[in-house]
């Protein structure tokens, strides 16, 4: 039996943020969705993000994660282009 939907916050920074026109969106996704699957949904829904897909690392709740990570209700997901501090 399906667990229904969960809601996650997705945050954007730098070039992808400007391309999207916002720094944050909410996504309702099926329970059990992985980070990789969420990225696929985002690219489908927001074509402006597509040029950045290959370069984006993902953090969940402020820690880097792999694409196989399963998302939970209330997670804060961040799409991070290659960093350039210092």
């Amino acid at each position: 039996m399906e667990n229904g939907e969960i809601t996650v916050r997705v945050r954007f920074f730098a070039a992808p943020r400007e391309a999207l026109g916002t720094g944050e969106i909410e996504m309702e996704i099926p329970a059990g969705t992985t980070v990789g699957e969420l990225m696929g949904l985002l690219m489908e829904r927001y074509p402006a993000l597509r040029p950045y897909t290959r370069f984006i690392s993902v953090a969940v709740n402020r820690a880097y994660v792999g694409m196989q990570t399963e998302l939970r209700d209330g997670d804060e997901v961040a799409c991070l282009p290659p960093v350039g501090g210092g």
Partner: peptide, 28 residues
């Protein structure tokens, strides 16, 4: 410390030049 900072800390830099052109760290 500075090498690790450049590697893992989520900070991005946009350079804006006198001629109006820009370059972003995340563009490579």
């Amino acid at each position: 410390a500075i090498d690790r900072l450049k590697e893992i800390v989520p900070i991005w830099r946009k350079e804006v030049w006198m001629d109006g052109a820009e370059r972003r760290s995340e563009a490579g």
